[in-house]
Nucleic acid binder design. Structure first.
Lengths: 240, 240
DNA sequence: TACGGTTGTCTAGATTAATAGACATTTAGG
DNA sequence: CCTAAATGTCTATTAATCTAGACAACCGTA
């Protein structure tokens, strides 16, 4: 059930399991988490340990404990983010949340590393524009991303984005009306300290990192991005 | 750097960070992990805590400590698993590992839940075949999966797989020569106890779960599967 | 061979996590 | 208006994790 002496506190393991059950819809019949005593029996731990787990979930805003009534589930949705040849961030999520925002955290001109140069078809050391973005839906952080563009071809990407708030519109303002997703690599790992604070994740949380290359209609790469999604808030839907 | 009182032991946080650094290639110059004393200073913890972290990485087979010399990195590769319209498990990984195996763990005839019925276009309660598979590459567990097939259309799927060791060949033996990937949903979460033991993961490990539907050339769903990949051993490559 | 740098082992103590039990407080329902 | 069932709070104890320091064992090299 839960394991001991593995470097993960019991209350955290239990919190993770309950979070998963909630998102699986296991408690949809009642809309409530089972009583603390029942959970303690189920997981074979003391009630206080379960209370620590529930306190952490309440802290995330996922559940709401009321003395005398029980612990109700506050929310359980997972945004679905489609990935296809025509992946567009804001379009994909529209309809699933009311308030979608992409905020420019930082931008800079930097020399291309080997990795970036390979992805964008530049020479290593050539100048490129880096944009750091934070996207949120209804006030919850959904993803943070770092994108690179050729500084020669798209010199004013940062200004455009700051004004328009959209990659697609910024490309259009730079004279590129269309682009397609050339490749997407997907990896999952624990969030680092920066991601924890940006996405307001609880420590130990998981991020899905999508390393994507977008290309113009002629097939030339125009954007290399690494987007880190809060794994418990999204699912990626691949459209082949 | 590392955070305290978050329900994750310091040694585990440190192990996770070092694992990430290794797969990022941060230590490729020397092929060695920095000395324990340096790591202890870097993370602001006692050397013994770092030793616990390294012991756990050594237990995974990721590093190798030698008294007097230091701690060497044993492996760092990540298998690349392509996902496309024509996703085939064994084909996709061939060439990346010598010894690829898919083992049938269990099979059963079960009534379709709502979820399975929706995916396969059956009526809830209709009988379907469930196959539980474990795939490994060079002796390391890569993924475990649960697949569902219509029992009416593919009554002998389990026998075929047991003999042929391949879904594609089992479909062929059932008279279906071709199929395509209709949809893939991707989610990442912590591994459960069953996955930990099947894939021999260290507790707290991450799995990437791909929920996929394969369809015949006429577009009728033939397979619904949930495949859980060990996140630190694979990356998914989306081919749009 | 001697030495600096590294991992291995041991002991002791401090801090954090988990257990155990008792009882208070609140809510819903008969 | 009770009572049952649920969460909230408190104290005490045990178990696990982290810190601290000292020293042994081993490797590579001068």
């Amino acid at each position: 059930m839960v394991e001991r002496q593995i470097g993960v506190a019991l209350w955290r393991q239990i919190a993770d399991r309950i979070r998963l059950s909630i998102s699986n819809g296991d408690f949809d019949a009642t809309g409530m988490v089972p009583p603390e005593t029942a959970l303690a029996a189920q997981f074979g731990v003391n009630r206080h340990t379960v209370r620590s787990a529930l306190a952490s979930l309440a802290d995330e805003g996922l559940v709401n404990a009321v003395q005398g009534r029980g612990t109700t589930i506050a929310r359980k949705e997972r945004l679905s983010f489609p990935i296809s040849k025509r992946t567009r961030f804001s379009q994909g999520l529209s309809g699933q949340a009311r308030d979608l925002k992409a905020r420019l955290l930082d931008h800079a001109s930097v020399p291309a590393t080997r990795e970036i140069a390979d992805a964008l078809g530049l020479k290593p050391g050539e100048t490129c524009i880096r944009l750091d973005l934070l996207s949120s839906a209804d006030g919850r952080g959904v993803s943070c991303s770092t994108s690179y563009f050729s500084a020669e071809r798209f010199p004013r990407m940062a200004e455009h984005f700051a004004r328009l708030g959209s990659i697609t519109k910024s490309f259009a303002a730079s004279g590129l009306d269309d682009y397609v997703r050339a490749s997407t690599d997907i990896v999952a790992r624990h969030a680092d300290a920066n991601e924890l604070s940006l996405l307001k994740l609880s420590p130990g949380a998981i991020v899905i990192e999508a390393q994507a290359i977008n290309a113009d209609p002629q097939g030339r790469p125009v954007q290399y991005s690494r987007t880190r999604f809060a794994a418990d808030r999204v699912k990626l839907t691949i459209e082949t």
